[in-house]
Amino acid sequence: MIAFANLWHDYASVLHKQFFQHALVAAILIGILCGVVGTYVVLRGYAFLGDALAHATFPGVAIAYLLGTSILGGALVAGLVTAFLIGGVSRNRRVSNDSAIGVLFAGAFALGVMLISRIRSYRKDLSSLLFGNVLGVSTADLVIICAMGALILALVFFFYRELLLISFDPIYTASLGYPAWALDLLLLGVLTLTIVVCLQVVGNVLVVAMILTPSAAARLLTDRVPAMMALGAGIGAFSAVIGLFISYPAELAPGATIVIVATAIFFLALLFSPRQGYLTTWLIHRRASSSTNEQVA
């Protein structure tokens, strides 16, 4: 009881501190953004590509860091260049294969780590770049997150139908005369922007989990795309808040804790989803078989 009162006191005092308010707002905004964009990543099957993209932004982050310029800018340039490369490569069916993408982006990631290792304070810098530093979000960072978030949401909602179409049926999309490769590129571009915005909160390694996990959980809970976006955004924002509140007093890495909360929600959905949950279907089967047993008896 005393421990609980202390915890409550901790929260009450930290909630007044600006750095925590910033962290909270940034985490909630990013949670919402990830849930919406993640819906398309899940539906288009771009999880692996998203991971590759996130890793490919790292050399950009490293170079920007070494030059002392904007890290977001560096990540954005590296990410967009990579998105265009992937878009170009996947147009040519011969070159597109998982191993090539995997090899290339693991290499890019290694290059980033190598560049960072030149700095003397390398361990500390590296960890904040790899795992994020949500408690260090400045007012200027918040403005950037808001502006880029608004741009991403505007793109997603304006092209809602076209992105849905290419995710569901690429052949039919092409038959209607849509530039299928341009729509795929648009999705990769939106994904890159989202990765870049999320870097500061969850870092390079976990950014894909932040984008993917809430939407994957939402996918288990609904059969409608708009509901999936709303639920994904809700789960993302909820994970962000709960993750921050757990991590702060326990002195855990906030980005990782946020991702763990989202992952826990995903497993809960996997077990208890009303129509396809493992536990739910098991219970239904058991009830069905016990009632037939009774009839037999």
Binding site: S167, F168, D223, R224, V225
Partner: peptide
């Protein structure tokens, strides 16, 4: 297109 070309579990009506 061929029916097998799409994922029929896709969350649309």
């Amino acid at each position: 297109p061929q029916r097998e070309a799409v994922d029929w579990q896709f969350p649309v009506t």
